[in-house]
């Protein structure tokens, strides 16, 4: 799902960095309170897991790529703030070490996947039934993929509108929302289902290990 480098106009990614910086400051507030010798190993495990899952990238028609995200797992275990920070770190490492995603796309990817995706999952986890939490967790993991996909599709789709040559040809991403939204959303509905199944397996595992209370 990540947007690679070079497809987002500076008039979009620079304000996005401002917005993301605010979100990173908000997320980092109180990190000293949360990060201790018990939390850090879990955070490292899940960040590394999300990182590894994100290595498998599938090209999708219409101009982007898809893969399992792991953001639902991060949000479920650590909450929105740590999930957002950890996923931002995953995105940074992917951009710097693997050329996946990119530094110009980092704020958009982080806000869409790390913040919106994690928030969707966290809300579903908060509203889960104590008797049968599985549906809420599955829906949360599904939404944690589908909502960021929609946002990213819209961000890509506005690029030819906000940045074009005098003759109307695009300067960055070339396809408008009517092409890119269905091209991204249709495969991500399937990816969302796979993510939900994986998240349920990890949830069960985390419960067995006493990672969830």
């Amino acid at each position: 799902m990540h947007i690679p480098d070079g497809f987002i106009a500076p008039q979009f990614y620079l304000p996005a960095y401002l917005l993301a910086s605010g979100a990173w400051v908000w997320a980092a507030r109180g990190i000293r309170r949360t990060l201790d010798e018990e939390t850090i190993p879990r955070l490292a495990v899940i960040t590394a897991l999300a990182y590894a899952i994100g290595l498998v990238m599938l090209p999708l028609p219409g101009g982007t790529s898809g893969h399992l995200l792991g953001i639902g797992i991060l949000a479920m275990l650590f909450g929105v703030r740590l999930a957002f920070l950890a996923y931002s770190l995953v995105l940074l490492l992917q951009a710097m070490l693997l050329g996946a995603g990119g530094i110009t796309a980092l704020p958009v990817n982080a806000l869409a996947v790390g913040l919106v995706g994690a928030s969707a999952m966290a809300l579903c986890v908060r509203w889960r039934s104590t008797r049968n939490p599985l549906p809420a967790i599955a829906v949360g993991a599904f939404l944690a993929v589908v909502l960021p996909a929609l946002l990213i599709a819209l961000v890509l789709g506005v690029q030819p509108i906000i940045a074009q040559q005098d003759d109307g040809s695009p300067l960055f991403f070339p396809f408008r929302p009517e092409i890119v939204v269905p091209a991204i959303m249709l495969p991500h509905l399937l990816i969302g289902i796979a993510e939900a199944v994986l998240t349920l397996a990890v949830w069960r595992y985390a419960c067995d290990r006493g990672w969830l209370h």
Partner: peptide
């Protein structure tokens, strides 16, 4: 940022 640096080191090691 000591937290960011520490988390990066640990994450890369875990990966």
């Amino acid at each position: 940022s000591s937290s960011l640096s520490f988390l990066t080191t640990l994450t890369v090691g875990q990966f």
